[in-house]
Amino acid sequence: MNPLSAFWRNETVVFHLRAGGCGGCADVVDEWIRSSGRDRLKTTECVSPRHADIIIITGLSCAPAASAAVSIIEQAPAGCRIIVMGDCAAGCGPHRKTGEDPTRLDFEISFDSRIEGCPAGRQSIAGEVKRCLGSS
């Protein structure tokens, strides 16, 4: 990287919130954040929702996990976009078929984008992130 790019480089700051589940979608997100340059996006991960431009939520949220997730999401700035990724987080995963839907997040907060798939593909993340950034 050019040292002079430190002056005007811009990156989209992503906070990744992992809930429960198999972790497949979470791994896809982690890999995508590190290689998002391939999708013509510059992203970097942060450890605090307060720094985030975009929050990506993956995994299954039972009631206690959902309340913890909501308390984390509430710390994000108002302009931050929220994307739920994968069937579990989107509330249409394997648990839906059993008639038990432990996903509670969608009752608590509104999302800007919902990506379905088990696991969801990296192309879908790139597309939704671009769409969210375009609408912000």
Binding site: M1, N2, P3, A6, F7, N10, E11, R34, T44, E45
Partner: peptide
């Protein structure tokens, strides 16, 4: 300081661990 940090970041991340994971800190950011 920004020039010095740019120099630091210009070295591949393999040389200094976790530095690829921090928010963008350019003047613009």
């Amino acid at each position: 300081g920004t020039l010095a940090r740019g120099l630091r970041q210009s070295v591949p991340a393999g040389g200094h661990g976790h530095d690829s994971a921090f928010p963008a800190l350019s003047m613009r950011a």
